[in-house]
């Protein structure tokens, strides 16, 4: 059975199909949260809440608005960003840290996040910091093209071509 079938069944509240989707994407969703939250235990809890939310919102997914993974990734990053905002606000009144993926890439000894930093470093090998930052903003923080351009202080028109070349480099690293 293919992905579209599982998604269709999941939207009809078929718990078995949902379990299949969970097994397919749990690591990715928990990973995306961990990039932002950087605390593996807390990320696991949020990740579980996110899947409950995905189930509750199952009828809201509209395939004409994008990929299923894009949709759940968006729910996950909103939850992760909410967590960091409320926490940093309480503790230090700081803004959302901007460089999460860059930080992880550079500080391999980050113990709390318990991730596969070697795997991550292999994937991101040879990428310029601006590239990693752009991936972080677009995929992990949900920045729009315009917001990402402002953050990186570059014309909006270059965001598209730049993300293309950044992702292509990772694809070469994967090969």
């Amino acid at each position: 059975m293919n992905l579209d079938n599982h998604i269709e069944k999941f939207q009809k509240k078929d718990i078995g199909a949902f379990e299949t989707l969970y097994n397919m994407y749990a690591e990715n969703i928990c990973g995306a949260i961990n990039v932002i939250v950087k605390d593996s235990e807390r990320s696991q809890e949020i990740c579980q809440d996110v899947f409950v939310k995905i189930w509750e919102k199952s009828d809201q997914y509209d395939p004409s608005k994008g990929r299923f993974f894009t949709w759940i990734l968006n729910i996950a990053r909103n939850a992760a960003i909410d967590e960091v905002r409320s926490k940093t606000y309480k503790n230090q009144k700081k803004n959302l840290p901007v460089h999460s993926l860059v930080d992880i890439f550079e500080n391999s000894e980050d113990l709390n996040s318990k991730m596969d930093t070697i795997g991550l470093q292999t994937l991101l090998k040879g990428l310029k910091e601006k590239c990693i930052l752009l991936i972080d903003l677009l995929y992990f923080k949900g920045y729009t093209q315009k917001e990402a351009a402002k953050e990186l202080d570059t014309p909006v028109g270059t965001v598209k071509t730049r993300i293309r070349s950044c992702i292509s480099k990772i694809r070469k690293n994967m090969a």
Binding site: A32, D116, L120, I170
Partner: peptide, 13 residues
């Protein structure tokens, strides 16, 4: 590609 990156960043599940 994004699945690979997020997977590498995953905590133990």
């Amino acid at each position: 590609t994004i699945l690979e990156i997020t997977k590498a960043a995953s905590p133990d599940i």
